[in-house]
């Protein structure tokens, strides 16, 4: 991070690239929300409600099966194998070429949780980059990218509609 000139160029590249993608929509098949995925996610976040651990308890509470915690779909960073280590940027993320020296973090999210997500759900994601904004922060310029994710089941019904904002800075 010492070479801020290069990093500033990277931020400009990132901004231009993301701006060029505004309005583009991509549909991806993410895969099945498995029982193990729900169990592990619930344990990792410290959940204790049995509807996330015990199918019988979930059904007794009126659900069709084991229930995913509310932000599981939002929290999964990679649904499939992902890239080989040699293809990731040095910070371990997936990034466009020439922007590896930026710092990127989640900044917030607006979520509409339209239906509970039940183990076995086969998930699709319609992704749309809605806005890219350059703002001046206390320690320099920051690029905010807001992306709409519509997570739907195999029958096309929308489960979650999430607007996620990430920030990138030098």
């Amino acid at each position: 991070m010492e070479d801020t000139t290069n990093a500033t160029d990277s931020l400009a590249r990132f901004y231009d690239d993301m701006r060029s993608r505004v309005g583009q929509r991509h549909r991806r098949h993410l895969g099945v929300v498995s029982r193990v995925m729900i169990l592990r996610y619930a344990i990792a976040i410290g959940e204790t409600n049995p509807i996330h651990f015990d199918e019988g308890a979930a059904k007794a509470a009126g659900f069709a099966g084991l229930v995913a915690p509310p932000n599981l779909l939002a929290g999964i960073a990679e649904w499939n194998g992902g890239l080989a280590e040699s293809e990731l940027t040095p910070d371990g993320t997936v990034r466009m070429d020439g922007t590896a020296d930026l710092r990127v973090m989640g900044a917030g999210e607006d979520m509409e949780l339209l239906q509970s997500v039940i183990a076995g759900a086969d998930i699709y994601d319609d992704e749309l980059i809605e806005s890219v904004d350059l703002k001046q922060g206390r320690s320099g310029p920051i690029v905010f990218v807001t992306t709409l994710h519509e997570f739907s089941g195999a029958d096309g019904s929308v489960l979650n509609r999430n607007r996620r904002t990430i920030l990138a800075r030098v």
């Binding site: 410290g46 204790t48 509807i51 509310p70 939002a74 607006d110 979520m111 949780l113």
Partner: peptide, 23 residues
């Protein structure tokens, strides 16, 4: 976010469903 939502899921129980969240 998951930590914040646990206040709702644990405090209200399964009879309630979170519909919208903004953070």
């Amino acid at each position: 976010a998951a930590n914040a939502l646990r206040v709702l899921t644990q405090g209200l129980g399964s009879e309630w469903r979170i519909c919208k969240v903004a953070y």
